[in-house]
Design a protein around this nucleic acid. Sequence first.
DNA 1: TTATAGATTGCCT
DNA 2: GGCAATCTATAAT
Length: 207
Amino acid sequence: MKRLQALRPEFFTRDPRHVARDLLGKILVRRQGHQTLTARIVETEAYLGKGDPAAHSASGRTPRNAVLFGPPGCAYVYFIYGNHYCLNVSCLPDGEAGGVLFRALEPVTGIARMTQNRGLQPHRSKTGLSPADLRRLANGPGKLTQALAITRAHNGLNLTDSTQVLYLADDGSPKPRAKTTPRIGISKATSLRLRYLIADNPFVSKP
DNA sequence: TTATAGATTGCCT
DNA sequence: GGCAATCTATAAT
């Protein structure tokens, strides 16, 4: 496979809204054992450090959300609803809170391993997984972490370092057409349109 | 020390 | 569309 260029820290030293928009179409790379799993980012949400009551950083720094206040380009992984992990990347300079939540991915390589990680039956046929099976692999924030075997062990990881087991990369594909909607699953600041998705992409969590 | 809400998912009707 | 499952960080006592 062509070697992918990791996104640089400067990419994340910006307003989370811009980062969330520009991450659409980029690649999340996961090295699991000797395998490399890759997936295209098709849906994100921005969480602002200041003036965003829905953000985990809203009421100040705690042990849990410390990564959001740290240097840009690092993984913030948290456990939610007793069952799921969610993956974010920190934004803005060190000391300033902000992040982007990954909400959906389009699987590219390592699909068999992702299916296994998700605990799904590999409904194989001559054409491989059905389109529906492929979609349910990573079309949600909890699903994508499970598909890529991301846990709290990855919290704080530098996602701009291509020698890590998890990082963000640019494969040179053109900038996709983006759409915005209100964020999903929150109860505060519900009117802000901080959810970004690739228009017409079937791998998003909800249209 | 205890209570509770939560950036979800999958199964049920 | 409704709701239970299942953990835990954080706030309240």
